[in-house]
Design a protein around this nucleic acid. Structure first.
Length: 981
RNA sequence: GGACCAAUAGCUCAGUUGGUUAGAGCACCGUGUUGAUAACGCGGGGGUCGUAAGUUCAAGUCUUACUUGGUCCA
């Protein structure tokens, strides 16, 4: 404990007394005295304070305290950051906000366990590792998958350690010794178990999907691997004869003629105007008359001019139709002797082309969707190496064979075929930006590939836990949790979305999303531990997939022991049998030849999307810290940026509803993004970005935390040097308030307030303090930290500094120790100190803890305290409203007198005003003047009496000592106390 | 191109169901103190509420369009 000066004696020794010109009476005053420095030095001192909290295991002790108290739980769950790169401002924002919640819940008496965590698998890391390999002159094929994963694991761990240090520096309270890592074997096993449940529920299916594909590397391309480059393509206009309409043609436009063999439909925009023109003039080859003369060509009216210019034909409009009239027409395939339909296309625009869109479901994302919508064939006629598959028909007129040939050289042959059939209107090379492989820089193509999906629309039982018999789709059950009921009226207890618009945002995403593709053809991720079985009628096999929980559990146990390598390494080594429990295959009459393990890995969103299970609901071990018995969902709060409506909030909701029939969270709070002073996002080109460590070095974390606290995070929050400077000013206000309080309470132990005997001013201040603090706790409960911050800041500034402290300086400095008013004031200041510091502790943990230790000793820690509450005091508010109006009016008059040179400080003034039932002494104190007397009307004047050299107030009479009566008695009492000691 | 969100003094924020001359704190200007002094007090100036229409007796507050910015998607 810190040593206190137990005596209540005035500061007998004051450095100021060395100054000869100093008023001798100063030594007899009780001036504030404290070692709490005016300058914080946060940037230098905070790191040591972080270490102190860790060394003292503040978090652990808090948990043990609350568990011992059987406190209710409040669980904040964290969306794991990706283990790559330093922490940026967005991290600083969201982890600070979460820390506000965790700390304020602990201080409100909750048990609030909080584990940091990291998202460790996935392409970005695998990719980085591949780059490192290339730097060593190797490729990923030169090393085993196991070794590749080992490198990925090491890479992720490196960044986990870096980020952990950054994160702790933010001042975040949490279980730093037990973070969760999605690459930890127990979590990897937990992820596999969640997949198993999904499979057992019948929600996992294999289906075709349109994938960006690099034919050069023969691999699927993830979004992040796609680059855009200027390349040359051939744009063609092709006329397709319409079935049953003599001489009429649909004109399509495409920049990928190699996809024409895969043409399965033409799409139109239903509300667009289309017209047909009769070709009256054509000059394709100079003088030569084109074979197009006299043909009737259909095209979107708004694109007619661009088309005729591009193709070089003239003609007049014959007929017009709405797009919807064209739907249902049939046309001749561009190359083959088949008939294809005209369908509605949701994606058709009139930006370019003809408004009649060539649909090759195998070769485009939107084409694929339309293909599915209208039941068109989806098979891909191009293989992984970019060659037309065997069985692709030869071109009928020219007889050219294209099967087994690379698509690119075949384009010329296809154009020649079209030329010969008279269907080619024009072909022109042009440059455009087009997706290419980041590695080979070759153009990417779309292919349909087989992938694994979570079905959003298959109705099954158990997706709404309260209604176990209800058959409902994952989509509808999720919507029921989002809105409280789905479109069909199925009710369910909803999630609380803060701000409320988050509900519509995630709702519309769930409503419109396709099935969730969970497979990736990669190495660094949790394997899709599914076995496909061709034989039917096998126990524990449904729809061709092994669903027996025993098998998934067996694999999970292996992964728990050996990491995800357990799966691949056995498959590669031909030891698939080991992936089954003993005798499992044999007892069913199966051999390893009958089962085919999937070698894809899971989408990394599945890892983080199941943390509610493998972190919060995990049985035993570290999962135990989150187990709750109050019947609530696993987490009280998920809080992340609004991008997570598509990300983590979304994936977590789907997996939790699917496997547990309920949302994983009670509340979802979203924040905006950190933007610059003009509201623009940080970008390298604008050069407007800033990193947390730069700010911590300049200002210190508590000031950054105040910036977060002062901002309404439901919108984007602005950063600028000007804003930070104003936060530094705000910080100084708080710090000085602490300092003054500490100075005045120095040497005084905490005392209880005796509400009954308080002076009216103290009753009022206690009432105000209690009101403000209760308000602040309410704001914290509603996650409205900026309102709590504001309430505290304005209370500090206006009611304490401007008013109460200013008024009570006289009593604190000058009154005798035995003065009842002084004792009452000190008692209230204790409440003020404890109230302010505890309520600010979640927002600025460093400085509040510093102040707390200054008062209560080095072993004290404000973060182990609860919010200080204040005794109820009945106060007549209107009386004080009137008093403050009087004060304002008097101040205006005093200012006039001051400007005229009549008075300096208010204490030089004497006031006359009407008696409004407020005692003259209270008025005098509140106004800060030396004398108040009652008469009609308001007047201010310089007090013409004697100035007490000790308290500087003016009096009509003085004592023999030259002091006022109050000071005379105070000095006498002080001398007696010292004499006795 | 689509969905969602935002736009109030230099800055950060308040402005209930539309209703008197739009508020606060900070910053700024002036000033007083020099016993919170790299601090504290007092006074003052400053927004017509992104733009434009509309509804209404009445709009920052409702509607529409647009502009700017943000997130997600295409």
């Amino acid at each position: 404990m810190k040593e206190f000066c137990v005596s209540d004696a005035p500061n007998a020794v004051s450095k100021k007394s060395d100054k000869p010109e100093q008023n001798a009476w100063s030594d007899t005053l009780r001036l504030p005295k404290t070692d709490f420095p005016m300058r914080a030095g946060l940037a230098q001192r905070e790191p040591a304070w972080v270490q102190r909290w860790l060394d003292n295991d503040v978090y652990g002790e808090l948990c043990r305290m609350r568990l011992a108290e059987k406190a209710p739980a409040y669980i904040v769950h964290l969306g794991p950051p990706y283990a790559n790169g330093r922490m940026h401002m967005g991290h600083a924002l969201t982890y600070t906000l979460k820390d506000f919640v965790v700390r304020s819940k602990f201080m409100a008496g909750f048990y609030s366990p909080y584990a940091p965590g990291w998202d460790c698998h996935g392409l970005p890391i695998e990719w980085k590792v591949e780059q490192d390999l290339r730097a060593e002159g190797k490729s990923k094929h030169d090393i085993s998958k196991t070794e590749l994963r080992a490198r990925c694991r090491a890479y992720a761990q490196k960044w986990v350690d870096v980020q952990k240090a950054d994160w702790q520096r933010f001042g975040a309270l949490g279980d730093w010794d037990h973070p969760y890592l999605t690459m930890a074997p127990k979590n990897e096993a937990g992820i596999v178990r969640e997949l198993g449940k999904l499979v057992q529920r019948g929600l996992v299916e294999k289906n075709l999907r349109s994938t960006q594909w690099s034919w050069a590397e023969e691999t699927a391309m993830a979004e992040a691997e796609v680059e855009y480059k200027d390349v040359t393509s051939t744009a063609v206009y092709v006329a397709l004869p319409i079935v049953g309409r003599e001489n009429e043609h649909l004109v399509i436009w495409t920049t990928t003629p190699w996809t024409l063999p895969a043409n399965r439909a033409v799409a139109v925009k239903v509300d667009e105007d289309y017209c047909s023109i009769e070709v009256a003039a054509a000059a394709r080859n100079g003088s030569e008359l084109s074979p197009q003369l006299g043909k009737k060509l259909w095209i979107a009216e708004s694109l007619l001019e661009a088309f005729t210019n591009a193709v070089g034909i003239g003609g007049h409009v014959v007929t017009k139709q709405k797009g919807e009239q064209l739907v249902g027409w049939q046309y001749q395939h561009p190359l083959y002797n088949t008939v294809q339909p005209v369908v509605e296309g949701f994606h058709v625009t009139t930006d370019a082309g003809t408004g009649l869109v060539h649909i090759a479901p195998a070769h485009g994302a939107e084409d694929f969707v339309i293909g599915k919508q209208f039941g068109l064939p989806l098979e891909c006629p191009v293989d992984g190496a970019g060659k037309y598959v065997a069985g692709t028909p030869s071109l009928p007129l020219t007889g050219e064979v294209i099967e087994g040939k690379l698509i690119w050289p075949m384009q010329k042959l296809i154009l020649a075929e079209l030329e010969q059939s008279g269907r080619l209107l024009s072909a022109k090379d042009f440059q455009h930006s087009y997706p290419v492989s980041w590695r080979s820089k070759e153009k990417l193509i779309f292919r349909t590939t087989e992938q694994w999906f979570v079905s959003l629309d298959k109705p099954i039982k158990g997706l709404i836990a309260e209604q176990p018999e209800l058959e409902i789709s994952l989509r509808d059950a999720s919507l029921a949790r989002i809105y409280g009921k789905d479109a069909k009226g199925h009710a369910a207890r909803k999630v609380n979305w803060v701000p409320e618009y988050g509900m519509n945002r995630i709702g519309s995403m769930i409503e419109n999303r396709p099935d969730w593709c969970i497979s990736r053809q990669r190495a660094w991720g949790v394997p899709i531990t599914i076995f496909m079985v061709k034989k039917t009628g096998v126990d524990g096999v449904e729809n061709g997939l092994v669903t027996d929980p025993a098998v998934f559990e067996h694999v999970a146990k292996l992964i728990e022991a050996e990491t995800i390598d357990a799966w691949d390494s056995r498959i590669e080594a031909g030891r698939v049998a080991e992936l089954f429990p003993p005798n499992w295959l044999e007892s069913r009459g199966l051999t390893v030849a009958d089962v085919e393990p999937v070698t894809d890995i899971l989408d990394v969103w599945f890892d983080s999307g199941t943390t509610h299970a493998h972190v919060l609901r995990a049985e035993g071990g570290e999962g135990q810290r989150f187990h709750r018995t109050d019947g609530k969902r696993p987490a009280d709060l998920y809080q992340e940026g609004s991008d997570q409506h598509r990300g983590w909030f979304h994936s977590s909701l789907l997996t939790s509803v699917a496997n547990y029939g309920d949302a994983p969270y009670e509340n979802v709070v979203t924040s905006g993004f950190v933007v610059d002073g003009e509201g623009r996002k940080f970008s390298k080109s604008l050069g407007n970005g800033v990193e947390p460590h730069q700010l911590m070095d300049k200002y210190g974390m508590d000031i950054i935390r105040l910036w977060v606290a002062s901002s309404d995070y439901s919108e984007d929050i602005r950063y600028s040097p000007q804003i930070m400077d104003s936060m530094a000013d705000a910080y100084r206000r708080f710090r000085n308030t602490f300092r003054w309080l500490l100075g005045n309470l120095n040497g005084v132990a905490d005392v209880d307030v005796d509400v009954a005997s308080l002076p009216e001013l103290e009753r009022y201040m206690l009432h105000r303090l209690g009101t403000v603090l209760a308000e602040v706790r309410g704001h914290y409960d509603a996650y409205q930290f900026h309102k709590g911050y504001r309430a505290l800041y304005e209370f500090c500034g206006t009611e304490l500094s401007n008013f109460y402290f200013d008024v009570r300086k006289d009593v604190l400095y000058c009154d005798a120790a035995s003065s009842a008013t002084r004792k009452a004031t000190v008692a209230v200041l204790v409440q003020v100190f404890r109230g302010l510091v505890t309520h600010l502790a979640p927002l600025m943990p460093f400085t509040t803890d510093e102040a707390w230790r200054e008062r209560y000793g080095e072993d004290a820690c404000v973060h182990k305290e609860r919010f200080q509450t204040v005794p109820e005091v009945g106060v007549e508010e209107s009386r004080w409203t009137g008093l403050f109006e009087t004060r304002d009016a008097v101040n205006v008059e005093l200012e006039k007198l001051r400007t005229a040179g009549g008075v300096g400080a208010n204490s030089e003034a004497s006031i006359t005003l009407a008696d409004a039932g407020v005692p003259a002494e209270l008025l005098r104190e509140v106004l800060g003047v030396s004398k108040v007397s009652f008469a009609s009307g308001l007047s201010v004047a310089k007090h013409d009496g004697h100035k007490c050299p000790r308290c500087w107030r003016y009096y009509d009479t003085v004592e023999e000592s030259g002091l006022c009566l109050r000071c005379d008695e105070a000095v006498t009492e002080s001398n007696m106390t010292q004499g006795a000691a």
